[in-house]
Design a protein around this nucleic acid. Structure first.
Length: 299
DNA sequence: TGTTTCCCTAAGTC
DNA sequence: AGACTTAGGGAAA
Protein backbone atom coordinates (compact mmCIF):
# COMPACT_ATOMS: atom_id res chain seq x y z
CA UNK A 1 0.00 0.00 0.00
CA UNK A 2 1.34 3.38 -0.93
CA UNK A 3 1.38 6.09 1.73
CA UNK A 4 1.84 9.82 1.32
CA UNK A 5 3.55 12.19 3.69
CA UNK A 6 2.86 15.87 3.20
CA UNK A 7 5.93 17.95 3.96
CA UNK A 8 4.11 21.26 4.08
CA UNK A 9 6.65 24.06 3.93
CA UNK A 10 9.38 22.02 5.58
CA UNK A 11 12.57 22.22 3.49
CA UNK A 12 13.57 18.73 2.50
CA UNK A 13 15.44 17.11 -0.38
CA UNK A 14 15.34 13.34 -0.49
CA UNK A 15 17.98 13.22 -3.23
CA UNK A 16 20.53 15.40 -1.45
CA UNK A 17 19.89 13.61 1.84
CA UNK A 18 20.49 10.14 0.41
CA UNK A 19 23.29 11.14 -2.00
CA UNK A 20 25.65 12.83 0.43
CA UNK A 21 27.37 9.69 1.71
CA UNK A 22 26.09 9.57 5.30
CA UNK A 23 24.29 6.25 4.79
CA UNK A 24 25.22 3.17 2.78
CA UNK A 25 22.07 1.16 2.23
CA UNK A 26 20.07 3.14 -0.35
CA UNK A 27 19.99 2.76 -4.12
CA UNK A 28 18.31 5.00 -6.65
CA UNK A 29 16.36 3.80 -9.65
CA UNK A 30 14.80 6.67 -11.53
CA UNK A 31 12.78 8.78 -9.11
CA UNK A 32 12.60 6.05 -6.51
CA UNK A 33 15.01 5.22 -3.71
CA UNK A 34 15.01 1.76 -2.15
CA UNK A 35 16.75 0.92 1.12
CA UNK A 36 16.71 -1.32 4.17
CA UNK A 37 16.14 0.48 7.47
CA UNK A 38 15.72 -1.23 10.85
CA UNK A 39 14.49 -4.60 9.55
CA UNK A 40 12.22 -2.98 6.95
CA UNK A 41 12.52 -2.39 3.23
CA UNK A 42 11.45 1.08 2.13
CA UNK A 43 10.76 2.49 -1.31
CA UNK A 44 10.48 6.27 -1.34
CA UNK A 45 10.22 9.12 -3.77
CA UNK A 46 9.65 12.84 -3.41
CA UNK A 47 7.26 14.78 -5.60
CA UNK A 48 7.69 18.42 -4.67
CA UNK A 49 6.25 18.82 -1.19
CA UNK A 50 5.12 15.22 -0.82
CA UNK A 51 6.90 11.99 -0.03
CA UNK A 52 5.37 8.83 -1.41
CA UNK A 53 6.46 5.54 0.03
CA UNK A 54 5.84 1.84 0.33
CA UNK A 55 7.31 -0.50 2.92
CA UNK A 56 7.65 -4.20 3.68
CA UNK A 57 6.11 -3.65 7.11
CA UNK A 58 3.23 -1.56 8.38
CA UNK A 59 5.48 -0.42 11.19
CA UNK A 60 7.08 1.87 8.64
CA UNK A 61 4.47 4.61 8.71
CA UNK A 62 4.65 8.36 8.18
CA UNK A 63 5.83 8.88 11.75
CA UNK A 64 8.65 6.38 11.26
CA UNK A 65 9.84 8.19 8.14
CA UNK A 66 9.53 11.56 9.78
CA UNK A 67 11.78 10.40 12.60
CA UNK A 68 14.28 8.68 10.30
CA UNK A 69 14.67 11.72 8.06
CA UNK A 70 14.75 14.13 11.01
CA UNK A 71 11.86 16.20 9.71
CA UNK A 72 11.61 17.54 13.26
CA UNK A 73 14.82 19.55 12.77
CA UNK A 74 14.09 23.21 12.13
CA UNK A 75 16.35 23.58 9.08
CA UNK A 76 15.67 27.25 8.52
CA UNK A 77 16.74 28.03 12.06
CA UNK A 78 19.82 25.84 11.62
CA UNK A 79 20.74 27.64 8.37
CA UNK A 80 20.36 31.00 10.04
CA UNK A 81 22.89 29.95 12.69
CA UNK A 82 25.71 28.78 10.46
CA UNK A 83 25.26 30.01 6.89
CA UNK A 84 27.42 33.05 7.38
CA UNK A 85 30.23 32.71 4.88
CA UNK A 86 30.75 32.21 1.15
CA UNK A 87 31.27 28.44 1.29
CA UNK A 88 28.36 27.62 3.54
CA UNK A 89 25.99 29.90 1.68
CA UNK A 90 26.92 28.17 -1.57
CA UNK A 91 26.58 24.74 0.00
CA UNK A 92 23.17 25.57 1.46
CA UNK A 93 22.00 26.97 -1.86
CA UNK A 94 23.24 23.93 -3.75
CA UNK A 95 21.99 21.30 -1.31
CA UNK A 96 18.95 23.05 0.06
CA UNK A 97 16.88 20.61 2.10
CA UNK A 98 19.69 18.16 2.86
CA UNK A 99 19.06 16.64 6.27
CA UNK A 100 21.02 14.46 8.61
CA UNK A 101 19.49 11.01 8.95
CA UNK A 102 18.71 9.35 12.28
CA UNK A 103 20.29 5.97 11.59
CA UNK A 104 20.04 2.83 13.69
CA UNK A 105 23.05 3.06 16.09
CA UNK A 106 24.37 -0.49 15.81
CA UNK A 107 24.40 -0.54 12.02
CA UNK A 108 25.86 2.96 11.98
CA UNK A 109 28.66 1.92 14.34
CA UNK A 110 29.65 -1.08 12.22
CA UNK A 111 29.37 0.93 9.00
CA UNK A 112 31.84 3.54 10.18
CA UNK A 113 34.25 1.00 11.69
CA UNK A 114 34.30 -0.47 8.19
CA UNK A 115 34.66 2.97 6.58
CA UNK A 116 38.28 3.51 7.64
CA UNK A 117 40.51 3.81 4.58
CA UNK A 118 37.70 2.95 2.16
CA UNK A 119 35.74 4.95 -0.38
CA UNK A 120 31.96 5.04 -0.34
CA UNK A 121 31.32 2.43 -3.07
CA UNK A 122 33.58 0.00 -1.20
CA UNK A 123 31.79 0.66 2.10
CA UNK A 124 28.42 0.03 0.47
CA UNK A 125 29.79 -3.21 -0.88
CA UNK A 126 31.02 -4.33 2.56
CA UNK A 127 27.71 -3.60 4.28
CA UNK A 128 25.82 -5.35 1.49
CA UNK A 129 28.06 -8.41 1.83
CA UNK A 130 27.68 -8.55 5.62
CA UNK A 131 23.89 -8.24 5.36
CA UNK A 132 23.65 -10.91 2.67
CA UNK A 133 25.87 -13.30 4.62
CA UNK A 134 24.58 -12.71 8.17
CA UNK A 135 21.27 -10.86 7.91
CA UNK A 136 17.70 -12.10 7.57
CA UNK A 137 16.04 -12.19 4.15
CA UNK A 138 13.01 -9.97 3.54
CA UNK A 139 10.87 -10.34 0.47
CA UNK A 140 9.55 -7.08 -0.93
CA UNK A 141 7.74 -6.70 -4.22
CA UNK A 142 9.16 -9.97 -5.48
CA UNK A 143 12.74 -9.05 -4.67
CA UNK A 144 14.93 -10.34 -1.86
CA UNK A 145 16.61 -7.92 0.56
CA UNK A 146 18.61 -8.58 3.71
CA UNK A 147 18.41 -6.91 7.10
CA UNK A 148 21.57 -5.82 8.89
CA UNK A 149 22.58 -8.54 11.41
CA UNK A 150 22.18 -8.12 15.16
CA UNK A 151 25.28 -7.81 17.36
CA UNK A 152 24.67 -11.33 18.70
CA UNK A 153 25.14 -12.73 15.20
CA UNK A 154 28.33 -10.81 14.40
CA UNK A 155 29.74 -11.60 17.86
CA UNK A 156 29.85 -15.26 16.87
CA UNK A 157 30.88 -14.80 13.26
CA UNK A 158 34.03 -16.47 12.01
CA UNK A 159 36.76 -13.96 11.13
CA UNK A 160 37.26 -15.89 7.93
CA UNK A 161 33.63 -15.28 6.91
CA UNK A 162 33.84 -11.56 7.75
CA UNK A 163 36.96 -11.29 5.62
CA UNK A 164 35.11 -12.94 2.76
CA UNK A 165 32.76 -9.94 3.04
CA UNK A 166 35.86 -7.88 2.13
CA UNK A 167 36.29 -6.31 5.57
CA UNK A 168 40.04 -6.99 5.66
CA UNK A 169 41.69 -5.94 8.91
CA UNK A 170 38.38 -4.38 10.01
CA UNK A 171 36.91 -7.85 10.55
CA UNK A 172 38.36 -8.33 14.02
CA UNK A 173 37.36 -4.82 15.10
CA UNK A 174 33.79 -5.52 14.03
CA UNK A 175 33.65 -8.86 15.80
CA UNK A 176 35.25 -7.65 19.04
CA UNK A 177 32.95 -4.63 19.13
CA UNK A 178 29.98 -6.93 18.51
CA UNK A 179 31.05 -9.06 21.46
CA UNK A 180 31.30 -6.07 23.79
CA UNK A 181 27.92 -4.74 22.73
CA UNK A 182 26.30 -8.14 22.88
CA UNK A 183 27.69 -8.96 26.32
CA UNK A 184 25.72 -6.00 27.59
CA UNK A 185 28.75 -3.98 28.56
CA UNK A 186 27.44 -1.22 26.33
CA UNK A 187 23.91 -0.15 25.63
CA UNK A 188 24.16 2.05 22.56
CA UNK A 189 20.72 3.56 23.08
CA UNK A 190 21.69 4.78 26.55
CA UNK A 191 24.35 6.99 24.94
CA UNK A 192 21.57 9.10 23.47
CA UNK A 193 20.74 10.41 26.94
CA UNK A 194 24.35 11.14 27.86
CA UNK A 195 26.29 14.36 27.33
CA UNK A 196 28.31 14.48 24.10
CA UNK A 197 31.70 14.11 25.77
CA UNK A 198 30.61 11.25 28.01
CA UNK A 199 29.01 9.34 25.16
CA UNK A 200 32.11 9.88 23.05
CA UNK A 201 34.39 8.58 25.77
CA UNK A 202 32.36 5.36 25.91
CA UNK A 203 32.51 4.87 22.14
CA UNK A 204 36.27 5.52 22.07
CA UNK A 205 36.81 2.45 24.24
CA UNK A 206 35.54 0.16 21.47
CA UNK A 207 38.09 -1.46 19.14
CA UNK A 208 38.25 0.23 15.75
CA UNK A 209 36.63 3.40 17.09
CA UNK A 210 38.73 6.54 17.16
CA UNK A 211 37.83 10.24 17.17
CA UNK A 212 36.36 10.29 13.68
CA UNK A 213 34.31 7.08 13.87
CA UNK A 214 32.96 8.08 17.30
CA UNK A 215 31.89 11.47 15.94
CA UNK A 216 30.13 9.83 12.98
CA UNK A 217 28.15 7.49 15.22
CA UNK A 218 27.20 10.33 17.57
CA UNK A 219 26.12 12.60 14.73
CA UNK A 220 24.37 10.12 12.44
CA UNK A 221 22.62 7.94 14.99
CA UNK A 222 22.65 9.41 18.50
CA UNK A 223 21.33 12.95 18.03
CA UNK A 224 24.60 14.71 18.93
CA UNK A 225 24.61 17.65 16.52
CA UNK A 226 27.74 19.02 18.20
CA UNK A 227 29.76 16.13 16.74
CA UNK A 228 32.05 17.20 13.90
CA UNK A 229 33.65 14.23 12.13
CA UNK A 230 36.94 15.16 10.44
CA UNK A 231 38.00 12.81 7.66
CA UNK A 232 40.35 13.55 4.76
CA UNK A 233 37.71 15.72 3.05
CA UNK A 234 36.85 17.79 6.10
CA UNK A 235 40.54 18.24 6.84
CA UNK A 236 40.87 19.77 3.38
CA UNK A 237 37.80 21.96 3.91
CA UNK A 238 39.09 23.39 7.17
CA UNK A 239 42.69 23.85 6.04
CA UNK A 240 41.82 25.30 2.61
CA UNK A 241 38.69 27.38 3.28
CA UNK A 242 39.38 28.48 6.84
CA UNK A 243 43.18 28.41 6.98
CA UNK A 244 43.47 31.97 8.27
CA UNK A 245 42.24 30.68 11.63
CA UNK A 246 45.44 28.71 12.17
CA UNK A 247 49.17 29.26 12.31
CA UNK A 248 50.60 28.89 8.76
CA UNK A 249 53.12 26.34 10.03
CA UNK A 250 50.32 24.23 11.51
CA UNK A 251 48.38 24.33 8.23
CA UNK A 252 51.36 23.26 6.14
CA UNK A 253 52.34 20.52 8.53
CA UNK A 254 48.86 19.02 8.84
CA UNK A 255 48.12 19.26 5.11
CA UNK A 256 51.04 16.96 4.39
CA UNK A 257 50.10 14.27 6.89
CA UNK A 258 47.97 11.32 5.92
CA UNK A 259 46.35 11.10 9.31
CA UNK A 260 45.71 13.43 12.21
CA UNK A 261 47.02 12.97 15.71
CA UNK A 262 44.46 13.20 18.47
CA UNK A 263 45.76 16.65 19.35
CA UNK A 264 45.52 17.93 15.77
CA UNK A 265 42.02 16.51 15.46
CA UNK A 266 41.06 18.38 18.62
CA UNK A 267 42.51 21.63 17.27
CA UNK A 268 40.40 21.38 14.11
CA UNK A 269 37.35 20.42 16.14
CA UNK A 270 37.77 23.38 18.48
CA UNK A 271 37.82 25.71 15.50
CA UNK A 272 34.62 24.12 14.14
CA UNK A 273 32.88 24.38 17.48
CA UNK A 274 33.65 28.06 17.92
CA UNK A 275 33.14 29.09 14.29
CA UNK A 276 30.02 27.14 13.23
CA UNK A 277 28.28 27.18 16.58
CA UNK A 278 25.88 24.68 18.06
CA UNK A 279 24.86 23.01 14.78
CA UNK A 280 28.39 22.26 13.58
CA UNK A 281 27.34 18.72 12.75
CA UNK A 282 25.00 20.07 10.09
CA UNK A 283 27.68 22.45 8.86
CA UNK A 284 30.03 19.47 8.56
CA UNK A 285 27.62 17.53 6.37
CA UNK A 286 27.02 20.42 3.98
CA UNK A 287 30.72 21.20 3.65
CA UNK A 288 31.67 17.55 3.25
CA UNK A 289 29.22 17.07 0.39
CA UNK A 290 30.17 20.41 -1.15
CA UNK A 291 33.89 19.63 -1.15
CA UNK A 292 33.41 16.19 -2.64
CA UNK A 293 31.21 17.55 -5.42
CA UNK A 294 33.73 20.32 -6.13
CA UNK A 295 36.54 17.78 -6.38
CA UNK A 296 34.53 15.60 -8.72
CA UNK A 297 33.58 18.53 -10.97
CA UNK A 298 37.15 19.79 -11.10
CA UNK A 299 38.88 16.56 -12.12
C1' DT B 1 36.21 2.31 -29.26
C1' DG B 2 36.72 -1.52 -25.97
C1' DT B 3 39.91 -4.08 -22.71
C1' DT B 4 43.58 -4.66 -19.52
C1' DT B 5 46.89 -3.00 -16.41
C1' DC B 6 48.78 0.17 -13.32
C1' DC B 7 48.63 3.29 -9.73
C1' DC B 8 46.65 6.21 -6.29
C1' DT B 9 43.72 6.84 -2.57
C1' DA B 10 39.91 6.21 0.38
C1' DA B 11 34.20 9.33 5.67
C1' DG B 12 41.44 6.21 10.21
C1' DT B 13 43.03 3.37 14.30
C1' DC B 14 46.37 1.90 17.41
C1' DA C 1 55.51 7.60 14.31
C1' DG C 2 54.72 3.97 11.25
C1' DA C 3 52.21 -0.32 10.18
C1' DC C 4 48.08 -2.03 8.82
C1' DT C 5 45.46 -3.71 4.24
C1' DT C 6 42.37 -3.75 0.10
C1' DA C 7 39.29 -2.64 -3.54
C1' DG C 8 37.23 1.10 -6.41
C1' DG C 9 38.17 4.06 -10.09
C1' DG C 10 40.61 6.98 -13.09
C1' DA C 11 44.70 7.14 -16.14
C1' DA C 12 47.49 4.98 -19.16
C1' DA C 13 48.66 1.37 -22.26
Amino acid sequence: MQIQLDLGKTPFSLDHTLSCGQTFRWERQGDWWTGVVSQKVLKVRQVNGTMEFEASSEAADAQFLSRYFRLDDDLLRIYSRFAKDHYLCNAVREFYGLRLIRQEPWECLVSYICATFKNIPAIKQMIRNVSRRFGRPVLFKGQQFFTFPESSVLAEAELRDLKLCKLGYRASNVRETAKLINDGNFDLESLREMAFKDAKRVLLSLPGVGEKVADCVLLFSLDKLEAFPIDVWMKRVVLEYYSENFEPAFVEKVKLKRTLSRREYQTLYDFGRSYFGEYLGYAQEYLYHYKRCQAQAGS
